[in-house]
Amino acid sequence: MRLYALGDTAWMVELPGLDDVVRRHAALTASRERGEADGVQDLVPAERTVLVRFDPRRISPAAVREWVVGTPPEDYAVRAEAEIELPVRYDGEDLDDVGRLTGLGRKGVVRAHSGTPWTVAFVGFAPGFGYLVGGDERLRVPRLPSPRIRVPAGAVALAGHYSAVYPRVSPGGWRLIGHTDADVWDLDADPPALLRPGVRVRFTPVDDR
């Protein structure tokens, strides 16, 4: 584990891999829920890092550092959150391309994507945009060479070893394989994000007629 200062309001905690990020983030979250490290305001897990943002008027950078270093990571399984099913119409604009790139063909991609459950590793890019991991290894595809200006809300996409659902209309460079009508970002829901770190997701194909 390495700590880098990000100005005077955050530490960037660099870890060997995504598993370490998930376990470390779960441990820090649980500690804060117990009321520890008052003054720490936000934890931002990403692929290899956890950003710990704090209010330097309420807690010193040194105290935050000691808290991070002194909080042992949790078991991956401990924070297994809800399991949800997302119905998907596999009709994405890039489905043929993904079939070619992976050698699986359209039907193979659908089977692979819906055949293995995914887990939300972290959320970034936009409110409620969960990065899902743990799916079928054969689905790794590069991002589009140039991003789309407009990806519709609910688009189900692939990039690298991740899958995601676009929560709202936005630009985006991931490859679109389908769409879901499920509301993955709903301000009236508590919590507003359906895809939170730790949530397990099973995609289920619905007829595309």
């Binding site: 990000l6 100005g7 309001t9 955050a10 960037m12 931002v44 897990p45 990403a46 692929e47 290899r48 890092t49 956890v50 950003l51 943002r53 959320v123 970034g124 890019f125 936009a126």
Partner: peptide, 27 residues
Amino acid sequence: PSEGLVRGAVQVPPGGYPVLFLADHPV
């Protein structure tokens, strides 16, 4: 790989001209 940002972060995109992030920076 993407990593967390704060306001005040100075990022260098491929073009080499820095971006100084303010309040509504991406997460």
